[in-house]
């Protein structure tokens, strides 16, 4: 019953999105004008863009240009531009270090967990919360779920250590009560590291990340729900055929942007969770940069690794964006 109506709803959906994205009817005439005239006619738009452009140039691009440090031997006195060139020295140094591939592998693994595996959970929570009709209850639960976002990593890791402690930790107590050994040292065994990381991230971010999806859901056309329910779609069906397609664009954009972070793991969390037992998998590029690059004053080396991370991110984002553009029409540019 529902299946047949789904087509209808999808049609409606498409209609609605077409309506929204309708081209400027006078677009054709504008296109024929020379570029400078078109630019001139848009001057108020450039004026509106101006603060953001100034911001990006001064705050982002000038420091990004400072990445030439990756090819220079940095001298305090001579500054970024005056320092002597050293060519690809730092890149060679990095790629010839025996640790390099292990670091890249670790970083990719953690990046995969953070960017891909963790990604759907906030959407799921948003969909769940959307199903809750009791407004008070919804408000309270939402506030609770976003609470951990305010706790600093130091506090969370301290709590985590307490929960996961061998013998005395809550988790091991439960395992013991269920007849297990209860002496597993989770933080000292590399096998558990990724699971711990994943759980900590979900716990901390799920509520916070779901806010943006909730907002997107609020923008979904109510008529579509009415139509779907009229056609006999139950709530699961509505969720699948109306809500999800309705926030598809938001999901797609966030995913494309998130993919760029595949080669960065962040420093603080890794550093706090790292133990001699799990360092074989917990050492990532970000940790390495802080340990080797900054603390020892090897700024060029740190920049070189940053450049590698950025380049990989760029390739991934461009690729994901064009694939997405082709198949789903959701794209950043």
């Amino acid at each position: 019953m529902c299946a047949t109506t789904c087509d209808k709803i999808e049609n409606l959906q498409r209609e609605s999105s077409m309506r929204k994205g309708k081209q400027n009817p006078s677009g054709i005439t504008i296109r024929t004008k020379p570029l400078w005239k078109r630019m001139l006619s848009c001057w108020p738009l450039y004026l509106m863009l101006l603060p953001a452009i100034v911001y990006y140039i001064l705050i982002c691009y000038v420091p990004i240009a400072g990445n030439v440090l990756a090819f220079k031997d940095y001298s305090f006195r001579k500054g970024i531009w005056g320092s002597p060139w050293v060519g690809m020295k730092y890149f060679n140094m990095f790629f010839s270090s025996y640790d390099c591939w292990r670091l890249i592998r670790n970083t990719l693994h953690i990046g995969f967990i953070k960017c891909i595996l963790e990604f759907p959970f906030a959407i799921l929570l948003a969909l769940l919360l959307n199903e809750i009709r009791a407004e008070k209850f919804k408000k309270v639960t939402q506030t609770i779920t976003y609470l951990p976002h305010f706790l600093s990593s130091v506090i969370i890791v301290t709590m985590l250590q307490r929960i996961l402690a061998p013998n005395t930790g809550v988790l091991n107590q439960i395992i013991k009560a269920l007849g297990g050994g209860g002496d597993t040292f989770f933080l000292m065994q590399s096998g558990y590291f990724h699971r711990i990381l994943f759980t900590m991230d979900i716990w901390r971010n799920i509520g916070w990340d779901s806010i943006i999806y909730l907002a997107a859901i609020s923008g979904v056309d109510q008529e579509l729900y009415e139509a779907a329910s009229m056609d006999g779609c139950n709530r699961l069906g509505q969720c699948w055929h109306v809500t999800l397609p309705g926030i598809r664009g938001t999901i797609g954009l966030l995913f494309i942007m998130g993919v760029g972070g595949l080669l960065s793991s962040g420093f603080e969390q890794m550093w706090l969770l790292r133990t001699p037992g799990n360092m074989a998998v917990a050492d990532t590029l970000d940790v390495y940069v802080v340990r080797i690059g900054l603390q020892n004053g090897q700024f060029g080396y740190a920049s070189a690794i940053g450049l590698i991370q950025g380049l990989v991110g760029l390739v991934l984002v461009v690729a994901t964006n064009s694939i997405s553009k082709k198949f789903t029409e959701v794209a950043l540019w």
Binding site: T158, Q161, A165, P166, N167, M188, P276
Partner: peptide, 11 residues
Amino acid sequence: NPEYFTMDATR
């Protein structure tokens, strides 16, 4: 104590 090398300061 198995956490001899890793226990955080508070604990």
